[in-house]
Design a protein around this nucleic acid. Structure first.
Lengths: 341, 341
DNA sequence: ACCCCGAGGAAAAACGTTTTCCCGCCTAGC
DNA sequence: GCTAGGCGGGAAAACGTTTTTCCTCGGGGT
């Protein structure tokens, strides 16, 4: 137990192959400029194989000044929406030979420091930021330091790179669907903060309304903190307005669950008396009661492009922010219908 | 842009303070055996501060032979249940000065190799395994290598360390609740695989039945792969049995959502005609329709103890597997009631 | 005057890579 | 016979820490 299986070093395989470490290194790394007798190369490869050699990532990183590690700062508590992103990030990163370090933003204020360290201590080659709890100021500081990072779905003009989807168009698509069904009094359960994507979605709601020839009524727009209880309350209040909205759009899939619960509690029949839609799809949306009509955004693609952008930056190429324009897709399920006559 | 703010090295702060790197290192690391003039110490500290010095984690790790990094192998697709664990792990690790590297098991078979590398390349000091997709054999291999790891909620006698909860007792608690309400025909939607925790839960179901003086009927036990569709189908089939179960227990919170959907589609009134319970709570359970009665297990504590155990192992202390015995708590919501007369 | 000691600090050897020189040898061309 | 230039490969210098070893002072005791 704890046999401390002495790690095999490059020097070990070099010795086993009867060569120096330099040539061993170059062969193992497939240096194309190396000139070597095929037989010697084979000896080295064989030695590495039988010894089960793995280069020490630390030593290599130290020398190469890169870690082949990406960091991602995410708010794990929003897991319904972050999961898809996390999965995509991990997959793309792995495909590129990178591993990913995760940092939660649960207590961002105390730990902003910690995130700095991910980069400053050179633990990661680049950082992905996927939490709206990370302040714009923090992002700006990061930018000052000149280290590579990409912000997901937040656009900070002039500071760093970002990958985002067209939130505005997405929410507008939801509104359009409801308007097409004949709804005119449409409510919106919004996020609370003034974070950029929250604003963009709200703007999309208003734009969608106007496009449909409707006027967004301020009293039918309710902001709420993201936790279940507050969303529940906000939705209840929204539904208590008179005249009542005949349809509501919820700004995020996490918020959709408690919003739906509030709708149920209001005693209204869904979808006959009230239509409910969520911006962004989620794996459970189809299994809620009623199955939730949603607008699915290309989050995975956004994450992929974000990682791509980050990797490009790391490798020194000039990369640009990307806006994924893949059109939102309306996933029509059972929670929307024409308004009551 | 990309100013490449040259990283400040230990040598830089030493020079700024007019001392050698050795003494600077010892002062900055708080070596208690150092003897130094207070004024000199202050100079060093001040220099580090004004230069905003951060030790290079790679160099330090190389020297110290540890990375202060933990790895976790998890199935992100099971995000609904893994989230709490992930959050707890990250928090405890961060408190101990560790960061956490995440690896998805989405395609375990192709990537088993990759996980090996986390450890073999010395990227992490220890590994947490939180996915049932990781095969027992893989765990055994890992064990051979003698590197520190802890398996979460899987007990592999004799191989490595684990932290787990009492699944059996948890499921039995659910059954007991239903039995107390007067149910006698209780169904169970089980996981498909023969993975150890899946077996333990099933055993808990049977034990709970017997304790209540009931006999578990094989036809009322349905195994299903974890994806939503299959769970939906399995539950539908279960509810089509005659005589019908008057209550069902679902083996995991992720599965509970589609199971509930199937219950709805069966046309039965919940909970009057059918009670539904889920093993393990989840943030949305209370907002489903009807609000789901669940048994909450101390997952967070399990994760914390697991990390603790791992850190202890890493630091060389002798650690033992831990079973968190904190009693399951019944979270009674609206999805359970007495069976129809 | 000599010895010893402790405080204060420098030098240098690792840790395991990668990579840049460089060197010897062999062949070919003169 | 002599050299230019490959070819095959080795030595050694980094990368930025930590830590051990060792040196140098001053001063106090004998």
């Amino acid at each position: 137990m704890r046999a401390t299986a002495k790690a095999v070093r490059l020097a070990d395989v070099a010795r086993a192959a009867g060569v120096g470490t330099s040539i061993a290194s170059r062969v193992l790394n497939g240096d194309p400029t190396v000139s070597i007798r095929p037989e010697t190369r084979e000896r080295i490869l064989a030695a590495a194989r039988t010894l089960n050699y793995r280069p020490n990532a630390l030593a290599r990183g130290l020398k190469l000044r890169r870690t082949t590690t990406l960091g991602i700062i995410a708010n794990l508590a929003y897991y319904y929406e972050i999961a898809e992103i996390l999965i995509a990030v991990e997959r793309v990163a792995a495909a590129a030979g990178y591993v990913v370090l995760i940092a939660d933003t649960a207590d961002f204020v105390e730990r902003g420091e910690a995130y700095h360290r991910l980069l400053s201590e050179r633990r990661v080659d680049g950082l992905l930021i996927a939490s709206i709890l990370v302040t714009d100021d923090f992002v700006r500081e990061l930018n000052e330091e000149g280290l590579p990072f990409v912000v997901l779905n937040r656009r900070l003009p002039g500071v760093g790179l970002s990958a985002s989807v067209d939130d505005s168009r997405g929410v507008a698509t939801a509104v359009a669907h409801l308007a097409a069904l004949g709804h005119t009094r449409i409510g919106y359960v919004a996020g609370e903060t003034s974070a950029e994507p929250v604003r963009r979605r709200l703007a999309g709601f208003r734009a969608g309304m106007r496009t449909a020839g409707l006027t967004p009524e301020p009293r039918l727009i309710r902001r709420s903190p993201p936790d279940e209880e507050n969303v529940f309350r906000a939705t209840s209040e929204l539904l208590a307005e008179t005249p009542r909205p005949t349809a509501i759009v919820v700004w995020s899939p996490t918020a959709a669950v408690p919003a739906l619960a509030a709708a149920h509690q209001s005693g209204l029949r869904l979808p006959e008396e009230l239509s409910v839609m969520s911006y962004n799809d989620s794996p459970i949306a189809g299994y809620l009661d009623p199955p939730l009509t949603t607008v699915r955004m290309p989050l995975r693609e956004m994450a992929e492009r974000g990682v791509d952008c980050l990797l490009r930056t790391i490798s020194g190429s000039r990369a640009a922010s990307v806006v994924v324009r893949t059109p939102p897709v309306l996933v029509e399920r059972g929670s929307t219908a024409a308004p009551p006559a």
